[in-house]
């Protein structure tokens, strides 16, 4: 925990600077888009949040598997601590996408596969939190939560592939592993920076959330008494 405390401030300041510089660059330095004009600048806020909201769920699913197989207690704490952060980032992704839709699509909400699957992700995060908190027995709650996280992980490939499998109003991904990015390089660099920076800031939130979880759950242990 002491090492984490020390690493925390490094991660925080480096990623905060990277994030702010990338956002500034994206919002005021890059040229406007040839179709969407200046409204495309929302990409620098929307894409990092969407990407991280899905990555957090994958992290949660991995932690759940580790908890169920190896019975690592910290892993169960991590699952519970990631959930609210995931909910926040998904909320940001939905809201920013909604606002972006107004000037481009001409609507703030449509029931297309990408948007609905992201809404399901948001509801899942909220559901997982309230489920865990409704148990009075922590061990049982951890087990139940991990199983449900694994069941729900099927939604992640659905979100990812929704724009390929069905006709959606949402456009396909601009950055893929296999193809050359469909976004111009001058716009890609700040986007990349904003994703990495946002990931670092969210990592800090996960650290804080886990710390709170550990303090709550281990409050009767002697090492906690020494720590605080």
């Amino acid at each position: 925990m002491y090492q984490v405390d020390r690493a925390y401030s490094y991660i925080f300041y480096v990623s905060l600077v990277l994030y702010l510089v990338s956002i500034f660059w994206g919002l005021f330095v890059t040229p406007e888009d040839f179709v969407q004009g200046n409204s495309y600048r929302i990409i620098y806020l929307h894409v990092p949040a969407s990407f991280i909201s899905q990555s957090l769920y994958i992290a949660m699913a991995i932690a759940s598997a580790i908890f169920l197989i190896w019975k690592v207690k910290l892993s169960a704490y991590l699952v519970r601590s990631i959930a609210p952060i995931g909910a926040i980032t998904t909320f940001i992704a939905l809201i920013s996408g909604s606002i972006w839709g107004i000037p481009t699509w001409g609507t703030w909400w449509v029931w297309d596969a990408r948007i609905v699957s992201t809404l399901i992700l948001f509801i899942m995060y909220l559901g997982l939190i309230s489920l865990h908190d409704s148990f009075s027995n922590h061990e049982k709650a951890d087990k139940f939560l991990s199983i449900l996280v694994l069941v729900g992980s099927v939604n992640i490939p659905i979100i990812k592939m929704s724009v390929e499998w069905w006709s959606t109003l949402h456009q396909p991904a601009s950055i893929t592993i296999s193809d050359k990015p469909a976004i111009d390089l001058v716009m890609l660099y700040p986007l990349f920076g904003s994703i990495v920076g946002f990931a670092g800031i969210v990592a800090c939130l996960v650290i804080l959330s886990s710390k709170l979880q550990i303090l709550r759950r281990e409050r009767n242990k002697s090492w906690i008494k020494n720590y605080v």
Binding site: T30, P31, E32, D33, F34, V35, Q36, Y40, I43, T104, W105, G106, T107, V110, L169, Q171, P172, A173, S174, A182, I183, D184, V186, M187
Partner: peptide, 18 residues
């Protein structure tokens, strides 16, 4: 009743020709 615009995944500055 309603017309929605759909755009693709390409982003580029206006000065570059498609």
């Amino acid at each position: 009743e309603d017309v929605l615009a759909k755009h693709d995944e390409n982003y580029m500055p206006p000065s570059i020709d498609i």
